[in-house]
Amino acid sequence: MKQSLKHSVQQHLNKKSLSSQQLKQLLLRQEKKYRLRKSYLPWFKIVSVAPFLMVSVVLSVYFSNSVFFSTQTLGQRIAEEVANNHLKLKPLEVNSNTLEGIIPYFDQLDFSPLSPSFFTLSKQNLLGARYCSIQGVTALQLRMMDYKTDKIQTLYETEYDKKVFMGFPKTAEEGKPLTIYVKGMKVDMWVEKGILFALIESL
């Protein structure tokens, strides 16, 4: 029987179909692949992100270490500087047992000297003060005598210039003292109201 080519081809090809076994196999193959993709996708994401994470960790460790290192160095440097200064006991430029009596003399400072909350200046132990510098920044040093122990204490004050004192510990920046022992002396350093304080006393 004759019929159009289109109809014949259509009919002939439409008779062709996959067996149920073949269909099952192909459907299963697809399902397996999609299940596998779903299950390994989070791992794939982790694996692809892992190198970036590792680099981030290494960099953060490196930088945190270097900041720590530089902080220690800075703290150490300040501690050693004030310790040397303390040991020299250079003559005081003004003698007064009150801060109010001292402040008018220090009109060349770029900051206003303060009485720190961490340490109490009392009339009984304040001897006087003089100009000095810490890391090149003009500073003030207050000399005190602890009459109970007969030991001299020196309190240094300078403007807390972040550019100069970059890397100073955050805790010290927030007023919690950073303690460093140097040359048999204890040096406490902290920042309060924009002033860097360093208190040194012999042990």
């Binding site: 029987m1 004759k2 019929q3 159009s4 080519l5 289109k6 109809h7 014949s8 081809v9 259509q10 009919q11 002939h12 090809l13």
Partner: peptide
């Protein structure tokens, strides 16, 4: 117009590209 029984033979006679065209069309 072709004889219905010849469809398979025609498909085998044509080259793959012709069959592809035939598939898309028919």
């Amino acid at each position: 117009s072709i004889n219905e029984d010849l469809t398979q033979q025609i498909l085998e006679y044509l080259d793959p590209l012709e069959r592809e065209i035939l598939f898309y069309w028919a």
